[in-house]
Simulated assay, not measured.
Amino acid sequence: MAMDERQVQGKQEKRYATRRETMRLAKVILEDGERLPCVIRDLSLSGAKLSVARRHSLPKQFVLSMTDRDLTVPVRMALACPRSVAHVRS
Rank of each mutant, 00 (worst) to 15 (best):
M1L: 08
M1F: 05
M1K: 12
A2Q: 10
A2L: 08
A2I: 07
M3Q: 03
E5I: 13
E5P: 02
R6Q: 07
R6F: 15
R6N: 01
Q7E: 13
Q7M: 15
V8P: 01
V8C: 02
Q9W: 01
Q9A: 12
G10L: 08
G10A: 04
Q12N: 10
Q12R: 14
E13V: 15
K14C: 07
K14N: 03
K14L: 13
R15Q: 08
Y16G: 13
T18F: 04
R19N: 05
R19H: 09
R20D: 02
E21K: 07
T22W: 00
T22C: 15
T22Y: 01
M23F: 12
M23D: 14
K27S: 11
K27R: 15
K27V: 00
K27M: 10
I29K: 11
I29T: 12
I29V: 15
E31F: 09
E31I: 07
G33F: 04
G33Y: 10
E34K: 14
R35Q: 15
L36H: 03
L36V: 15
L36D: 02
C38W: 05
V39K: 07
R41P: 02
D42Q: 02
S44Q: 00
L45Q: 14
G47Y: 04
L50H: 05
S51D: 08
A53M: 01
R55E: 14
R55C: 07
H56Q: 02
H56N: 11
H56V: 07
S57N: 13
L58I: 03
P59D: 06
P59R: 03
K60W: 01
K60I: 00
Q61L: 03
F62S: 05
V63H: 05
S65F: 04
S65D: 09
S65N: 08
M66C: 07
T67Q: 09
D68Y: 04
D68M: 06
R69P: 01
R69S: 06
R69W: 11
D70T: 05
D70N: 15
V73K: 08
V73H: 02
P74C: 01
V75C: 13
V75W: 03
R76M: 06
L79D: 08
L79T: 12
L79M: 10
A80D: 11
P82I: 11
P82D: 15
R83M: 09
R83W: 06
S84W: 04
A86H: 11
A86N: 10
H87I: 12
R89G: 01
S90N: 09
S90A: 07
S90P: 15
